[in-house]
Simulated scan of single mutants.
Amino acid sequence: GAVAGATVTLGRIWDAANQRPGASENTVAQNAMSPQHLRVPKGTTVTFVNPADNRSAHAAVSFFEYEFDSGVLMPGQSFTHTFGAAGEYFYNDAIFPQNTGKIVVY
């Protein structure tokens, strides 16, 4: 969580070499959540961002426990959610459902 600043960038693949979201939008890769696996302490507010230079709408919707739903985020929009309970929260992009991620709250 610290490296990503408790922020998930939608539609981007993590650039491991530079420790940041990739520079271009990706709508087909399974790991197009940046980072795909985020670990944060309980009480953390996570921001989901659709970068202004993305061409498509994106969303972040948790499944199994239905903890959060960003709704449709147009380029340049963001959504925040505070995680109050420890657990594993799996989510995907409602627009491009093959894009998945996981947030582990400890």
Rank of each mutant, 00 (worst) to 15 (best):
V3P: 00
A4M: 03
G5V: 05
T7F: 00
T9C: 04
G11Q: 04
G11P: 10
G11M: 05
I13H: 00
W14Y: 11
A17W: 10
A17S: 12
Q19S: 12
P21D: 05
S24N: 14
S24D: 07
S24A: 12
S24E: 06
N26A: 15
T27R: 02
T27Y: 04
V28N: 09
Q30G: 11
Q30S: 10
N31M: 07
N31L: 09
M33I: 03
M33A: 04
P35D: 11
P35K: 04
Q36D: 11
V40A: 11
T44M: 07
F48G: 06
V49E: 01
A52P: 01
N54P: 13
N54G: 08
S56V: 09
H58Q: 05
V61P: 01
S62Y: 02
F63K: 02
E65S: 12
D69H: 03
D69Q: 00
S70R: 04
S70D: 03
S70C: 06
G71V: 08
V72G: 02
M74K: 13
P75K: 12
G76A: 11
F79S: 07
T80G: 05
T80N: 07
T80Q: 10
H81P: 06
H81Q: 08
F83E: 06
F83L: 01
F83K: 08
G84Y: 02
A85E: 10
A86S: 14
A86C: 09
F90K: 07
D93G: 01
I95K: 07
I95S: 05
F96S: 04
F96V: 13
Q98T: 10
T100A: 15
T100W: 08
G101D: 06
V105E: 07
